[in-house]
Write a protein that binds this DNA or RNA. Structure first.
Lengths: 198, 198
DNA sequence: TAGCTTAGCAAGTAATCACTTACAAAGCAA
DNA sequence: TTGCTTTGTAAGTGATTACTTGCTAAGCTA
């Protein structure tokens, strides 16, 4: 019976929760499994969070504070659009790899949560990602780096599929997807689509 | 108390199941809700399928028979690669729109099902989609339509994100995504990435 | 060391899950 | 009309869910 301060346990619980969502899916996330993974009883979980919902909301807090702030910083930096887009994707992808359950949690809660607060926060995260990508693309077109006949919206839509392509890739080919290579390959293709014709 | 032949009820059940998965998510799919949606009691469901699992397997049968056969036909046709890729995406996307729960069902069961038969069939569907896309791309490169420096695998990976981009799009912007426009826009971008440089 | 707060456990709770049982009646074939 | 199969219902089943309760003891502060 090991005692730890609540801040430490909260982090352990959030980490274990994401691991379960990643390896077994949201529909297999139960407080029983979670307690087992953390190494405490179910009762102990509720000493640190008042409900399962609060655990998930606390994870969303982290996404907003860490991922979204980083993406914002990259999108607003003064590097070239090409560089910004590459770094944007790298930050995005490496966060999703470090926090593997996030993609499924984000996507399935954004689409299907009964909880309207949770749902709208998830939607906001997805929407903000897309808006930031649009900003970079718009800048690149306005600055003459990319083709002016492109529709920003469509490029951003294509971009939004990439992090999930990675997820499909990890499912189809679990042995290994090299993060950096993945980003380089995808950016290389995106860049081809973006560059000026002729 | 309306009586219908089992074949009719089976179709009603599968349709209702996909509607629930689409609107409320897999984690909100219960036999109670399903029975309510079909308009019968829970017991009646089990007259037509021996388990919830069998209902889902029966849906997978349909995906294999309808979607995968259509995709195969398009991929193997003798049109130009450009045309085949466009028609491939259109068939793919319109099937997912007609059967809206399929994407989430496919994706989340492929990634996280406890049921190894179900899981491997879902993975096979995703993998076959990717292989067929690769065939079209490979043909286009070999036939001189597209740039020979492209890596087929990477283009197929990017392609696989498109149907899910559509799903994100439907979540972010539920009011309407025009199927045909969506396909045209995405193919237009893909085509830019694929065409020969200079 | 005394006392208080905190973090843990064991054993519950009601609600919900997929699924079953016993029985009724619809509808067709003889 | 008789009798059998099929499709339905109502009311269960045990298992599992998120969460609570009552109690214990660890560990800091005075």
């Amino acid at each position: 019976m090991e005692r730890k301060p609540t801040e430490v346990r909260q982090e352990e619980i959030k980490k274990a929760l994401l691991e379960i969502v990643d390896t077994e899916g949201l529909h297999n996330l139960s407080t029983r499994k979670l307690a087992e993974k953390v190494g405490v009883t179910e009762g102990a979980l509720f000493r640190h969070f008042k409900s399962k919902r609060e655990m998930i909301l606390s994870i969303v807090d982290g996404v907003e504070e860490v991922l979204m702030k980083s993406l914002q910083t990259v999108a607003m930096s003064d590097a070239s659009s090409k560089d910004r887009l590459f770094r944007f994707l790298c930050v995005h992808v490496s966060y999703l790899i470090e926090n593997k359950g996030i993609t499924m949690l984000l996507f399935s809660e954004a689409a299907h949560s009964n909880d309207s607060e949770l749902k709208s926060r998830m939607l906001n995260v997805l929407n903000t990602q897309k808006q930031l990508a649009k900003k970079i693309i718009q800048d690149g077109i306005a600055g003459g780096e990319w083709d002016s006949s492109l529709q920003v919206e469509n490029v951003a839509t294509l971009y939004m599929g990439i992090p999930i392509s990675l997820n499909i890739e990890l499912v189809l080919n679990p042995l290994g997807v090299n993060t950096e290579n993945f980003c380089k390959k995808m950016i290389c293709l995106l860049e081809r689509a973006l560059m000026k014709s002729k």
